[in-house]
Amino acid sequence: MNRFKASKFRHTEARLPRREAWIGGIRAGSFASCGNHVKASCHWVAFNAEAAGVLGIVPLECKDGGKRTVSQLCCHSDVVTDFDFSPFDQLLLATGSADETVKVWRLPESGQDMPSGTGLTLGPGGHSVDLVLFHPTADGVLASGAGKGVTVWDVGQQQPLTALDSHGDQLQSLTWKRDGCLLGTSCKDKKLRIFDPRASPAASQSVPGHENNKDSRLLWMGSSDCLISVGFSQMREREVKLWDTRRFSGAMLTMALDTSPG
């Protein structure tokens, strides 16, 4: 008898939806974008359009089998660098831009016109805003990364809750832990930092990250204490590192993905 149990998924295969259900023919992205290129809520899909300061907005669902229309949201006077939907309000969209401001927009219900004016503006902060990310468990809390610093905002009060200590170089990514208690950042100074914004603006932990200062990204593994970082080695090889933040002294695992051209 075979001691290996056959998987019930061994004959499964991906099935594409019908062509009429696709969202296609959209030229998304911009060479100047550094954060999200596309993001979706339960109502809308937002993507970075080619025109500076403009987001494309597409409804996620079409009523009565109608054709999706692409709307434009004129957000900023310069390139939209990053954007994020609130996990508590699926019509609330935050955008960051090279014009040094963070703006928060309330999108309409499906079938209505896009807003002509911003809901509120946070900033300017003196640097291009490269990253925006809503808090996963606290409604109305938003983190933004600009230059070497991170600001945590109270969107309702339109004021900063805290400004985290300056990093050694340009900020590259930030990520909230799923329970919202910790914030991780990566930076061009090749260090990874862990912050508890409620306790102190200073990093509670800091370790050397990737040996190359090319762009890097961080991601928490669900609700665990493990952190994944994606970056480049000294030889310009793309690599993934796995960290246990309870023993944040060295990577548990390093895996090279491929060799990137110079």
Rank of each mutant, 00 (worst) to 15 (best):
V54A: 06
W22S: 08
A14W: 14
L174E: 00
I194N: 08
G53R: 08
T101A: 01
D99F: 15
R247F: 12
R178C: 10
P201F: 02
R247V: 15
G56F: 11
D82T: 13
A46K: 00
A98F: 02
D154M: 02
G147L: 06
T12I: 05
Q158I: 15
G65I: 07
G123N: 08
S97Q: 06
L120A: 07
D82V: 12
P115M: 05
G145N: 07
M235A: 11
R236S: 13
N2M: 12
P208D: 15
F85L: 01
V80R: 05
R27G: 03
T175R: 02
T185L: 07
S33D: 06
N212H: 08
R178M: 09
T101Q: 03
S200H: 08
L164N: 02
S249I: 03
R217Y: 12
D78P: 06
T95V: 06
C42Y: 07
Q158C: 14
P208F: 12
P197V: 09
P124L: 02
A40L: 08
G180S: 06
A98I: 07
L133R: 11
G262A: 10
P124Y: 00
D78N: 13
L164A: 11
S206E: 15
G209S: 07
L122I: 14
S77A: 12
T185H: 01
L55Q: 13
D154Y: 06
A251D: 06
H210S: 05
G156C: 10
A6E: 15
W44V: 04
K241M: 13
G209E: 06
G209V: 13
E239A: 09
T245G: 01
G125E: 00
G53Y: 09
S116K: 15
D169L: 10
G117I: 14
V141L: 11
F31D: 14
A6N: 11
H37A: 04
L60Q: 10
R247C: 12
S186T: 11
G119E: 09
D165A: 10
F195C: 04
S77G: 15
W176P: 02
V141G: 02
W44K: 10
R27V: 12
S206F: 07
V70N: 03
L133S: 13
R3Q: 09
Q234P: 02
Q90V: 08
I194V: 15
A21P: 09
S97D: 05
L192D: 07
A143W: 13
H135A: 07
L183C: 11
T259V: 12
